[in-house]
Design a protein around this nucleic acid. Sequence first.
DNA 1: CCGGAGGTTCGAAGGTTCTCGTACCTCGTC
DNA 2: GACGAGGTACGAGAACCTTCGAACCTCCGG
Lengths: 118, 118
Amino acid sequence: MSSMPGELPIPEMAAVDLGAVLSALADPHRRAVVLELVDGDGAERACSSFPLPIAKSTRTHHWRVLREAGLVRQRDAGNGTFVRLRRDEFEAKFPGLLDVVAGISTAGISTARSAPVR
Amino acid sequence: MSSMPGELPIPEMAAVDLGAVLSALADPHRRAVVLELVDGDGAERACSSFPLPIAKSTRTHHWRVLREAGLVRQRDAGNGTFVRLRRDEFEAKFPGLLDVVAGISTAGISTARSAPVR
DNA sequence: CCGGAGGTTCGAAGGTTCTCGTACCTCGTC
DNA sequence: GACGAGGTACGAGAACCTTCGAACCTCCGG
């Protein structure tokens, strides 16, 4: 558990369980968020910048799930909170997973797909 | 929904949802089963041949989940049931997913790993 | 200093999941 | 024909998940 100033506690990557990760990614809201982060530039993003159609207490819940599943790092800046994917760490422990899920989720949304969903 | 003699009904691949797949793979028992199927030779396997430490009614439940998530095809042979991974179909719709999950799950169990879990 | 935007915590409702035992079915074997 | 192995269907319990509203906190801007 790291605990920097403003950084919310997150599990060490070694303690993260694949089952928890897959559960986290199974939810459409959370997957949508992770998707945006994956094909973002890796920079920090305001939590409020994700257009989730749910109550704010529910959003808090989802951020906690993503944090505890080892997917994101979250920083509390007083007036707002910010998230960052744990890209490299995550990739080291679960190689290929983010790319594959992102690829699958993106397929069918692409403007020029090679093989239509049918 | 296909329905051959003895074949239990399964969803068409097009109707399978990634969320359902990830949920299915999130459970340790089910993931263990899928793992065995992935690094098997693709042949049919008796459902009774998986050493799951759970009641048989619970096993029935898990097989249903795997079936409905589009991961396996199940055949009822009167005295016993058999499963087969929907390998190619699944690979076509969710490219790389099975291999990545299998790879991750296998890492740390391998006899000669390149990078210890640490 | 007051209001609003952004968040957290708490408690509760509603649904789903995992688990099991019991009852029942279907074969193959003795 | 009776028995056991392998399964399914059903019902029930415990745990968990997602969702929300209400109450509260913390900043920044006017």
